[in-house]
């Protein structure tokens, strides 16, 4: 009996928190079906006469066709790059020995802690010197670099948690360090990798300042550029903006759905010394 009460309490707590989380999403969706004149005068979540037209307007006027593909391309390459580069480095920092290890680790983490005012200006000057302004690679590489600090930090802590005896036995079996990294550590750190993927994807998917700064051809711009045109200096077309945001949010939620399974599967279950 008491078990049932506890379960009831648990669920009501969870539902309360869920309500607080899901409410803005519902508001965003219902707002995307309203019109500019009703969006702030009628605050109810239920829309009597939904104007689905908003979604079409958002897609067409926002040029989502190209931008969407661009965003997917950027996200895949940048996040892929971050995962590869940061996991290699994180493994080295967690398990291998070499001179200046701690110093280098701190150096790589520094961008996470020191806000660089006008860092974009310096970056622009640099990219201009390298002739990377208005190129895809000029947009991709700095963002891979920007994602490294947090990812290395996170992955390193998770790599450290992998029991050493697992590794030792693999080493005795003739696995090289790279082999251990690839076959043992990466699969075991899946939850952390999933977090790194989600974290960086969110960041890259929503990035626009750098895109505005270094890209000028429309054919290179990401999705956020499409959203931006609904936010005028003075007039913001809220319903269409909301519709555009709903479209832009779907892939992220989908990706999260895919990734969170890896977090919960518990690959490490049972792999710690008993």
């Amino acid at each position: 009996m008491s078990k049932r009460i506890i379960s009831l309490l648990k669920h009501s707590f969870m539902i309360l928190i869920s309500a607080a989380c899901i409410f803005p999403l519902l508001w965003m969706i219902s707002s995307s079906l309203k019109t500019q004149s009703t969006i702030f005068s009628d605050m109810s979540l239920f829309v009597l006469r939904p104007s689905w037209q908003n979604y079409i307007t958002a897609w067409v006027k926002g040029n989502f066709g190209i931008y969407f593909l661009n965003s997917v391309f950027y996200t895949v390459t940048i996040v892929g790059g971050i995962v590869l580069v940061s996991s290699l480095a994180a493994y080295a920092f967690a398990r291998l020995e070499f001179p200046f290890k701690n110093f280098l680790f701190l150096l790589l983490l520094a961008p996470m802690m020191i806000p660089i005012p006008g860092g974009f200006v310096a970056l622009y000057v640099l990219l201009n010197k390298m002739h990377l302004i208005n190129t895809r690679i000029g947009y991709i590489l700095p963002q891979i670099n920007a994602g490294l600090a947090m990812s290395i930090f996170l992955l390193k802590s998770f790599f450290e948690k992998i029991p050493r005896d697992l590794e030792d036995s693999a080493r005795i079996d003739g696995c090289s360090r790279l082999g251990i990294y690839w076959h043992l550590c990466l699969p075991l750190a899946k939850p952390a990798l999933a977090i790194v993927v989600i974290y960086n994807t969110l960041y890259v998917w929503n990035e626009y300042l750098l895109a505005m700064l270094i890209l000028s051809d429309k054919s290179l711009m990401p999705l956020t550029r499409g959203l931006m045109i609904f936010r005028g200096e003075h007039v913001t077309q809220y319903p269409i903006l909301m519709a555009g945001m709903c479209i832009a949010t779907i892939p992220i939620i989908f990706l999260y759905l895919l990734m969170q399974k890896h977090i919960i599967k518990g690959v490490m279950a049972g792999a710690v010394k008993g």
Binding site: G118, F120, Y124, V125, L209, M212, L213, R231, E233
Partner: peptide, 20 residues
């Protein structure tokens, strides 16, 4: 078009620094 104005401002400042 480079919007919002904040991003635009940074772009102009940066371009001024590198003469573009």
């Amino acid at each position: 078009l480079y919007a919002p104005s904040d991003a635009y401002r940074q772009k102009v400042m940066a371009a001024a620094q590198s003469n573009t």
